[in-house]
């Protein structure tokens, strides 16, 4: 879970609940840029060393926690297997498809509901009720409707990611600078033009924040669904490895999901830097 909260919740302008979360978990920055990377690498090496020593010294039984070297060996072994890459592919497809569906639905609905105050008030109580429902509570329902195929997991992913993006869009659509809006109107921009040239770019920082949160949540739910429902993917592989007693493989697969999570986060960050290069969160305040 940490992967999604620690550094991903740092948008320039977001609702206060998220800002609070960010404040509580903001990572401490090293003063010298190079020193930060070095410290980080050192920290990782130290963790691996402890992981190696703890099972070997017998503090924890190697049966439950194999030493790091064994897990890494199992991981490298997996990399050569066709079945591993199929599982990675299935996981990525479920994740991407779920995120895409959630994105499309959230943008369309968010813009629609966000720009009609009456509709917004009308739907807010329902949204506030549905949003906190943990996606995993829908597992029985998903299985009932779709069996154990990918669609069942997809349902969970879409549900969880949708709210993350939808709420952001809802806030973003109303946070249009009145001066920008009046400028657009005074230059004769119609409703549609204003939506496209003013509201959309104004909401973009929110939308990207939503996508960043949604992408992380989508991955969590992808793995969860595969693990508990048994849809094909890395989650299912973990469960298979567990039931066959291949403990080192279980850890190796967990490692793979972690790497996937980091990759997803780095990817979304790169998109953000590109799309929002004009925004203060990316360009900084120190301009002429």
């Amino acid at each position: 879970m940490n992967m999604m909260t620690a550094d991903s919740v740092r948008p320039a302008r977001t609702p206060t609940d998220q800002r609070r979360l960010a404040g509580a978990r903001r990572p401490v920055r090293a003063r010298v840029p190079g020193a930060g990377a070095l410290l980080g690498a050192g920290g990782a090496a130290a963790s691996l060393l402890i992981w190696e020593i703890v099972p070997r010294s017998g503090v924890v039984s190697p049966k439950y926690l194999p030493p790091a070297s064994e897990v890494l060996a199992a991981f490298v072994e997996r990399l050569a297997l066709q079945s591993f890459w199929t599982a990675v592919g299935d996981t990525l497809i479920t994740w991407a498809l779920g995120l895409a569906i959630a994105f499309a639905a959230a943008v369309v609905l968010g813009f629609l509901v966000g720009s009609v105050p009456l509709l917004r008030t009308f739907t807010s109580s329902t949204v506030e009720f549905l949003r906190p429902i943990p996606s995993v509570a829908l597992i029985p329902l998903a299985v009932l409707i779709y069996g154990t195929g990918m669609q069942a997991t997809l349902l969970l992913v879409v549900y969880a990611a949708f709210w993350q993006i939808y709420i952001q869009v809802l806030y973003g659509v109303v946070d249009v600078d009145p001066v920008a809006e009046q400028t657009a109107r005074s230059y004769g921009l119609g409703r549609w033009s204003r939506a496209r040239h003013v509201t959309w770019p104004s909401a973009l920082p929110y939308l990207i924040t939503g996508v960043r949160l949604g992408a992380a949540v989508a991955l969590i739910l992808t793995i969860t669904g595969q693990l508990t429902i048994g849809s094909p993917g890395l989650g299912q592989s973990i469960d298979v490895a567990r039931s066959s007693g291949a403990v080192a493989s279980v850890y190796a697969l967990i490692l793979a999901t972690g790497i996937l999570g980091v990759t997803v986060n780095v990817g979304v960050r790169a998109v953000e830097r590109r799309v929002l290069r004009w925004h203060t969160s990316v360009r900084g305040e120190n301009t002429a």
């Binding site: 600078d177 001066v179 920008a180 009046q182 400028t183 005074s186 040239h197 770019p201 004009w278 925004h279």
Partner: peptide, 17 residues
């Protein structure tokens, strides 16, 4: 259509994107 307005708050009136 034949009127233009220049606002005081240029930083907010110009679109940063």
């Amino acid at each position: 259509p034949d009127m233009a307005v220049v606002f005081q708050e240029y930083g907010r009136s110009l679109f940063p994107w």
